[in-house]
Design a protein around this nucleic acid. Structure first.
Lengths: 116, 116
DNA sequence: AGTACATTTAACCTATTAGTTAATTAACTG
DNA sequence: CAGTTAATTAACTAATAGGTTAAATGTACT
């Protein structure tokens, strides 16, 4: 995956309204008006978000008469997850390292206890 | 984790320079000058990124004389990974579901074949 | 004290973003 | 065909981001 599309994915997901829209679409397809319902902002404001999500390939849209149902597309999320995997070791092993450190500390203290 | 900090994490990661810096820090601590080395932009421009990364808690910084070594902090990445998990089913089961759907379709057709 | 190095701050510029209201397009319905 | 509903476009605004160059700060070395 290109650096560029990862940047676009992340920038698109950075907006909480868009993440809320994605969460709603995780429950199934929805039209713009349906998506707009939970928000207090104007309809044109909401309407811009599917466009942004579509440009980032996070959703796809079809046409059903005057409705434009939106559908979640998980591929960019998978790409993001793949990128994140490179860093997993850093959060998974940090407890181990803390643990190691504490054990080391205890070992030193025990040595001192023996000495004094 | 709050919606706000996820937004900050994502917005911070959306910049490719900052992701490159994180990748560099995955190899170990580095100073601003060291971090700047691979980039063509000015030093003050680079210098702004650690500030942003620090605000997002993606790095921590210490002080060693006139150097300010940066160190990766994986917590926000873990939070992001946790958020992403909610969507994993969509990319992992998407083939399965297509498969299921096709099987369902075939089953219905078989029923109809039986009836008619 | 004076110089050199690492980093940041200040002041500025430009592009982009997310919102607004008003107007427009497109499709169905009576 | 007239009216209604769904969605978008247009024109504008305010805030923010990421870069620039020049100046300032902090620390070490001699």
């Amino acid at each position: 995956m290109s650096t560029g599309s990862l940047s676009i994915t992340l920038a698109t997901l950075a907006d909480p309204t868009r993440r809320a829209i994605l969460a709603q679409l995780a429950q199934g397809e929805a039209t713009v008006t349906e998506l707009a319902e939970p928000f207090e902002i104007s309809l044109p404001a909401v309407s811009k978000h599917p466009k942004v999500l579509e440009r980032a390939h996070l959703i796809t849209r079809s046409r059903d008469a005057q409705w434009r149902p939106c559908c979640l597309n998980p591929e960019p999320l998978k790409d993001l997850a793949d990128w994140l995997e490179h860093y997993r070791q850093f959060w998974e092993h940090s407890f181990d390292r803390l643990d190691e450190y504490l054990q080391e500390l205890q070992a030193q203290e025990s040595q001192q206890d023996g000495k004094d």
